[in-house]
C-alpha cells in the first residue's frame, strides 16, 4: 500500500510540487501524466527518497520516506528517465552489483539474476557488455535491475521514451505482467493512449498540482458526464435534429453539417438502442450511429493549460 500525503517541494522561490496526495494498492498501475516540468519526476524522486520533501510524506507498507528511508528503499525499484549504466561491465555483473547492494542472499543471487533476465527477455545477453546492448535492451536491463529484490513498488519515470513501437509494446506487456504479480507500478509518460491501455488509475499534474486522480473511467466521466452520440444520416439532418430534440434522454442535438449530428444523451445502453430504433422507425436513413468516447488526451488537454513553472 502506497500513501502519498501532502507532498511539497520548494526550491527557493519555485514550488515544484504543491501538496500532492494519493494512495495506491497492490496491483494498481498508476499513470502519472503531466507536461515537462509539471512535477512528475520531482514527486517520483521524493517517493524514492532521493529528494527530501519540504513538507508532507509518503509511506510504503508502513515505511515512511522521511523516518525510514532505508526501509522504503528496500521496497521500491526506481527506474529514472536515463539509463545510468556502467561501462566495462557485463549484464550479469551489473545485476549482481545491484543484487548485492539490495542484500539479496549470495546463494540466491544467480537464480534471481536468471529469473529477472528471463522476465525481461535478456537471457541470451547474460554475458554481453551493457554498452553493447540496444536502447530497448538497455531499458529492459534497467527494469531487470529494479526487479532483483522483488520490490512492492516500481517507480518508472518515462520508461518508454526513445523506444521503437515494438520495444514499447513489449514494455507494456511487461508492466501489465508486473501489475498482475501484485506490484504497485507508477509510470510517468507522455504517450497517453498507451497509458490508457494498461493503467487502471491515472493522475494529472500541472505546475506541481494534482488536477485529477482516480480510475481512468472515472476521470473520463468527470470531463464528459453525458454520452455523446455521433449520428450520420444520408439526408435531412436538420429535420432529424428537430425530431431528436423531442426524444427521451436527449439533452441536446447539434448539427455539424448536412449529414452529421452530435447528440448529448443521458440514457443507458438500452435507451441508446431504443433511440436508434425510433430513428429507423421514423424512416431516418441512418448511415452511422456510435458513441464517442473521450480519451486521456482529451482529458489532459481539457484539464491542463500547458503552463510550466
Amino acid at each position: 500500500m502506497l500513501e502519498v500525503k501532502e507532498l511539497w517541494k520548494v526550491y527557493g522561490p519555485l514550488t515544484a510540487v504543491k501538496g500532492v496526495s494519493f494512495s495506491l494498492k497492490p496491483g494498481d498501475i498508476f499513470g502519472f501524466i503531466g507536461s515537462n516540468g509539471a512535477g512528475k519526476t520531482t514527486t517520483i524522486r521524493m517517493i524514492s527518497t532521493l529528494l527530501e520533501p519540504t513538507h508532507g510524506t509518503a509511506t510504503i507498507n508502513g515505511a515512511d520516506i522521511i523516518r525510514d528511508p532505508m526501509g522504503v528503499r528496500r521496497q521500491i525499484g526506481y527506474m529514472p528517465d536515463f539509463f545510468g549504466l556502467y561501462d566495462d561491465v557485463k549484464v550479469w555483473e551489473y545485476l549482481d552489483f545491484f543484487a548485492t547492494i539490495y542484500e539479496v542472499p549470495p546463494k540466491q543471487r544467480n537464480s534471481v539474476i536468471d529469473n529477472v533476465l528471463e522476465l525481461t527477455d535478456l537471457t541470451v545477453k547474460r554475458d554481453a557488455f551493457v554498452q553493447s546492448l540496444s536502447r530497448g535492451m538497455q531499458q529492459r536491463l534497467c527494469l531487470a535491475r529494479c526487479l532483483v529484490h522483488d520490490p512492492a513498488l516500481l517507480l518508472l519515470d518515462e520508461p518508454a521514451s526513445g523506444l521503437d513501437p515494438r520495444a514499447r509494446a513489449e514494455l507494456k506487456e511487461l508492466i501489465i505482467e508486473l501489475g498482475r504479480m501484485g506490484k504497485i507500478v507508477i509510470v510517468s509518460s507522455h504517450i497517453l493512449p498507451e497509458l490508457a491501455d494498461f493503467c487502471n488509475c491515472v493522475g494529472i499534474i500541472e505546475r506541481g498540482e494534482m488536477l485529477a486522480f482516480g480510475p481512468v473511467n472515472q476521470i473520463l466521466r468527470q470531463i464528459q458526464p453525458t454520452r455523446v452520440l455521433a449520428i450520420t444520416v444520408l439526408d435531412g439532418a436538420g429535420e432529424v435534429r428537430t425530431r431528436l430534440a423531442d426524444m427521451p434522454h436527449v439533452l441536446a442535438a447539434h448539427l455539424e453539417d448536412e449529414h452529421h449530428l452530435r447528440v448529448e444523451f443521458n440514457g443507458d445502453h438500452e435507451q441508446q438502442s431504443e433511440l436508434l430504433a425510433a430513428l429507423i422507425q421514423a424512416n431516418v436513413r441512418v448511415v452511422q450511429f456510435h458513441e464517442e468516447h473521450a480519451n486521456l488526451e482529451d482529458v489532459f488537454m481539457r484539464l491542463t493549460t500547458g503552463a510550466v513553472q
Binding site: Y78, F82, I101, E103
Partner: peptide
C-alpha cells in the same frame, strides 16, 4: 555525470558504502 549515483542511492545503502 553518468547519473548512476541515483541508482545506487535509491538502494538501501548509505553513501559510506
Amino acid at each position: 555525470q553518468r547519473r548512476s549515483l541515483d541508482l545506487v542511492f535509491s538502494a538501501p545503502v548509505p553513501p559510506r558504502y
